[in-house]
C-alpha cells in the first residue's frame, strides 16, 4: 500500500525557533487543519441559514433551483474533482522530487480552477440576464420561458417570488464565497508554480505544496455539498 519515505530533510527551510524539519512540518500540518476547521464554521454559518430557509420555503427553493443549469453544474463539479486529482498528483510529484511533473500538475490544477471560474462567470451572466440576481432588478416569473416545460412543477405559480429571491441571495452568497476561495487558491498556485520551476521543492521540503493541496481539496469539498444543495433540489 503506502510507502514510507525518509529522504534527507532540506534544513535550509527550518526556522530558528523549530528544533528540526519534522517539528516544523508537524506544526504546519496541524496549523493548516486548524485553519480548515475555522473554514468549516465560516461556510457553516451560511449553510445553517440555507437549511432554515430550505426547511421553511421548500417550494420556493425548488422553483429557484429549477432556474439553475444542472449540466453546467455537473460539468463544473467534474472539473473541480479533476483539479483535486491533479493537485494530489502534484503533491506526489513533489514528494518524489520530480520537478517537471510538479510544475505540470500545478499548472493543470490552476487551469482547471480557472475553467471552473469561467463557467461560473458564464452562469452568473445568465442569471443577470434572466433578472435572477437579487436586489431591485430581481423578477421571478412562474413558468418562465427559460425553463423547459417538462422541468416545471405544476404548482409553480403559487410560489412566493420573495422567497425565491431569498434562494438566489443564498446562491450568490455561497457560490460567491466559494469562488473567492478559488481565486485565492489560484493566486497561491501561481506563486508555487514559479517557485517550483526554480526548483524550490523536493522530497526534503514540500510543505507549501502539501498545505496548498489541503486548502484546495477543502474548497473542493465545499462545492461537493453546494452542488446538490443548489442544483439538484426536486
Amino acid at each position: 500500500m503506502e510507502i514510507t519515505a525518509a529522504p534527507m530533510p532540506d534544513t535550509r527551510h527550518v526556522a530558528h525557533h523549530f528544533d528540526d524539519a519534522e517539528q516544523q512540518f508537524v506544526a504546519a500540518e496541524l496549523g493548516m487543519w486548524v485553519f480548515l476547521a475555522t473554514e468549516v464554521l465560516f461556510f457553516g454559518g451560511v449553510f445553517c441559514g440555507y437549511a432554515i430557509y430550505r426547511f421553511k420555503y421548500a417550494a420556493e427553493f425548488i422553483a429557484g433551483s429549477h432556474r439553475l443549469d444542472v449540466w453546467l453544474g455537473t460539468v463544473n463539479t467534474a472539473v473541480l474533482l479533476t483539479s483535486s486529482l491533479t493537485m494530489a498528483l502534484a503533491v506526489h510529484a513533489a514528494q518524489t522530487s520530480r520537478r517537471g511533473a510538479l510544475v505540470r500538475n500545478l499548472l493543470l490544477t490552476l487551469l482547471l480552477g480557472a475553467a471552473f471560474l469561467g463557467v461560473k462567470g458564464y452562469e452568473y451572466h445568465h442569471k443577470f440576464e434572466e433578472r435572477l440576481v437579487p436586489g431591485r432588478n430581481f423578477r421571478f416569473v412562474a413558468h418562465s420561458a427559460h425553463v423547459p416545460e417538462s422541468l416545471q412543477p405544476a404548482k409553480e405559480e403559487k410560489v412566493d417570488p420573495r422567497q425565491v429571491e431569498l434562494f438566489f441571495s443564498l446562491y450568490f452568497a455561497m457560490t460567491g464565497l466559494h469562488a473567492l476561495h478559488m481565486i485565492i487558491g489560484i493566486g497561491v498556485l501561481a506563486v508555487l508554480i514559479v517557485a517550483a520551476g526554480r526548483g524550490a521543492f523536493s522530497g526534503g521540503y514540500f510543505t507549501p505544496i502539501e498545505m496548498t493541496g489541503l486548502y484546495w481539496h477543502f474548497v473542493d469539498i465545499v462545492w461537493v455539498f453546494l452542488f446538490p444543495l443548489l442544483y439538484l433540489i426536486r
Binding site: 432554515i52 421553511k56 437579487p134 436586489g135 420573495r162 429571491e165 431569498l166
Partner: peptide, 14 residues
C-alpha cells in the same frame, strides 16, 4: 450594501 435579502422579515427572512 448590495440590497440582497437575507435576514429581512419582509422578504421571509428570519
Amino acid at each position: 450594501g448590495l440590497g440582497i435579502p437575507i435576514f429581512d422579515p419582509k422578504m421571509g427572512g428570519d
